[in-house]
Amino acid sequence: MRYIFGRIVSAIFVVWFVITLTFMLMHAIPGGPFSSEKVLPPAIIDNINERYHLNDPLLKQYLDYLKNMAYFDFGPSYRYQGRTVNDLLQEGFPKTALLGLSATILALFGGVAMGVTAALKQNKMLDYVIIFLVTIGISVPSFVLATFLQYYIGYELHWFPPLGWGEVKNIILPVIALSAYPVAQIARLTRAGMLDVLTQDYIRTAKAKGLAKSTIIIRHALKNALTPVVTFLGPFFAYILTGNFVIEYVFNIPGIGQFFVTSISNRDYPVIMGTTVLFAALLVTFNLLADIIYTLLDPRIKLTGREGA
């Protein structure tokens, strides 16, 4: 219990750190958010600044911002007139979540299945095929893969729509593009974990006991082999979240990721800050969950302190 409490405190600290960092960075940018546009009369700029509280002392702005964050109020958007960041996030979140969740499911099941198959067929043809696919998945940047899929599968072959959102067939290409890297990583970790576990003494014991091969693999090996995969869950969620930026941008899906990328070129700082903070909060939550799953998988680790791994 104390361990979990400590983890929650440090998670809150991380989120605070991100809030402060984004606040400082956004205010360190030379020129206000509106200075880049066509030259406006000083009175109007003053007016705008007044409206968005940009004339207040920095400390007051910071404290106000923190307070609003505590109530999950990310403030108004600078670009989308009359809309708040919350509106945008609420609108985008279901799409991003659906995309992320589908990619997560595909990555976990596909990755583990591929990894186990490769390990069991070590140095055989199937192993090499999987290693080849895995290497491509790890090496080809998601935006390159997304663009290729969009062009060849979408525009050339017309199998799936290259753009847009709303129907089931719209989600296929983005999910493949988004999950390629995590599928590959999970397959690689599972394969390595499996190969490592298969040389362990307790597997030899299981063989010496005359157990069936399937029993040895499923009961004795798989659970142990998945521990490195669980440690990858943290970076995995991070990848799914950041990977979304570019996937939604390429496939023109109106999710949080696309708002984020467009707000970067629009210099819509509240959206940038809000998205960053939201992602940071989601991430620390996921990491906490991954840690808890880890302890459930391995009875040796108790939630008492920082584990060695």
Binding site: T22, F279, L283, N287
Partner: peptide, 14 residues
């Protein structure tokens, strides 16, 4: 605890 890419983007924006 926060993905590198997020930092990199924030810093590049700045």
């Amino acid at each position: 605890s926060i993905p590198d890419l997020l930092y990199v983007i924030l810093l590049m924006v700045t």
